[in-house]
Amino acid sequence: MAVCVAVIAKENYPLYIRSVPTQNELKFHYTVHTSLDVVEEKVSAVGKALADQRELYLGLLYPTEDYKVYGYVTNSKVKFVIVVDSSNTSLRDNEIRSMFRKLHNSFTDVMCNPFYNPGDAIQSRAFDSVVSGMMVQAC
């Protein structure tokens, strides 16, 4: 279960960011923001590296004391970042991957929604509920 989920546009500004607990949101802003460096590095390395790097899931971006940050970049250069608690060791790679898949599916739906203007903040409630489903429950 994630503590923070973020969707970042190709121009590197946030389209959607939600974290639990919500009062310390700024901290997560910082975390996700700095993780973009790593994302960019990984993406630009694709051309030079081997073929198996071509999948959309980027894996663990970097660990901090309390959190682990995972990344995923779509072909349309939209980045998804999920931050999970370090102490949550039960989360396996596959689970993270499936979380990203769900996010991507939901995001595609948002994109195809005629009321959504690409580049705007995501306000779709359907997307919100998908994200809530994968976040840690607030206590």
Binding site: V46, R54, L56, N75, M111, C112, P118
Partner: peptide, 20 residues
């Protein structure tokens, strides 16, 4: 244009990353 944006999102969902 707008339709294309949405379509591409859907079609590239499952493909691997483009090289160039």
């Amino acid at each position: 244009f707008r339709v294309g944006q949405g379509l591409i999102e859907r079609f590239t969902k499952d493909t691997s990353r483009f090289k160039d």
